[in-house]
Design a protein around this nucleic acid. Structure first.
Lengths: 238, 238
DNA sequence: TCAAAAGTGTTAGTTCTACACCCATGT
DNA sequence: ACATGGGTGTAGAACTAACACTTTTGA
């Protein structure tokens, strides 16, 4: 096969920011890096892109390795390429964020990786430019979730409105009026009310809802104007 | 220097979608590719990332080569990595979009590249996955411009509101009410009214405005809610 | 019966949209 | 004087934010 002449080939990696929501706080999953350099330092889950796979496939593979989960929401958001970002050898990294239902995640599987969930305000020092990746992933999540019904991916199949609200509140670091929030969510037509209630948080109990998968794709933009004063919650990027 | 063992290195390229606005239509700049394969086919401007530069730097370099322009608005938006996207050799490409004032662009400089402006509805067949890149760049531009005062980058320093409106209309393929449009734009506080008018389009003439550079960065989000029914104009991405 | 969380109602204020109208001026 | 594009005014609809109120039920 013909090749391009006189060009330098580079290592290409993927790194995943894996978001989960424990019902109270948004968290990300970190691991203790298994190889030198920076062995045993906290790191995102990542790996080199293999010759036979796209970066999407690489990210899926990596995610499967760490969480055991398939079919997870995964989105490429930025490629990091500073020439000294990896001290050992020039590597460019395509970064992804993933949204998983934290309860489906099998702790056992990950224990061999020494994985741990961290709240966003308690993230330890990370290797390389991984802190910057996390910050950017978080920002992108806010952007995207303001326009698209994305955060449902972090919840179980059945969830209550108060739970959904507390997720939004944690993502946007603000509080919403429950009345206004529930009206807006309901008005998207994305949710189907269930007959049963979750009574773990109150005597009265809160009705469960499910996503209406039919309307889900169709109304993928329906969340615009969800966030009061969105402007205050999206940071300037550059 | 130590290296990572047993990993495949890949070619990494950048490709640029260069947007310009001629006062009437949004256009992109394409070139006839200079090397095999697909020599003389229409293509985005791109190039391989060199060992000493980040992808941002590579994109800047490529842009300078084609347009002669420095300090142009340039934004990375997606990395394309399908393993057969380049038939010669596996190459991943980091795609950027650029916004330039078409009138500052020196036609002479580009003639050696056989560059040409194309309206978005008249784009010829492009090599590799470049058509997909263009489609995605356009979509990202709509997203970003709905939230940030970005489109000013496509205009001269002094511009009129009708001109700005026609740019928005072309980007979003819709028509805005001029009264509502001008009130919303003015209310951002981003524009400074000039004393002189542009009389090329009417007897009365339309006042020129300039961007208020001070407020520009500060109010970078101020454009939210600019696009009536934004939902109808942003496509589902995936 | 009472505390606590879920959920509904209400209202004042704001913003949006559509469209009518006025303005400036070269021909 | 009038046609043309620039620019302003405005009424009704729609949406928002804030907060008071009602409901449910386990303890």
């Amino acid at each position: 096969m013909l090749k391009y002449q006189n060009q330098t080939r580079l290592l290409v990696a993927v790194d995943c920011i894996i978001f989960g929501f424990d019902g109270n706080k948004l968290k990300i999953l970190l691991i203790k890096r298994g190889l030198e350099p920076k062995k045993d330092h906290w790191s995102l889950m990542g790996g080199f892109v293999q010759p036979a796979e796209s970066t999407d496939e690489a990210a899926k593979r990596v995610l499967k390795q760490l969480t055991g989960l398939d079919g997870v929401y995964l989105e490429q958001f930025y490629t990091f390429s500073a020439k000294d970002r990896d001290p050992i050898e020039r590597t460019i990294s395509v970064a992804y964020f993933a949204l998983i239902d934290i309860h489906q995640y099998e702790k056992q599987i990950s224990e061999e990786y020494h994985a741990e969930w961290f709240q966003l305000d308690q993230i330890p020092e990370l290797i390389f430019d991984h802190s910057q990746m996390v910050a950017m992933a978080r920002e992108k999540l806010r952007y995207k979730a303001a326009l698209h019904p994305l955060l449902f991916e972090l919840l179980p199949v059945k969830f209550t409105l108060p739970l959904l609200q507390s997720l939004f509140e944690d993502v946007y670091e603000t509080n919403f009026d429950k009345g206004n929030f529930s009206r807006k969510i309901i008005s998207t037509g994305l949710l189907i009310k269930q007959k049963d209630k979750d009574k773990t948080n109150s005597k009265k109990g809160a009705f469960y809802y499910k996503l209406d998968k039919k309307h889900y794709k169709k109304n993928f933009h329906a969340v615009l104007k969800f966030i009061p004063n969105l402007n205050n919650h999206l940071e300037v990027e550059k």
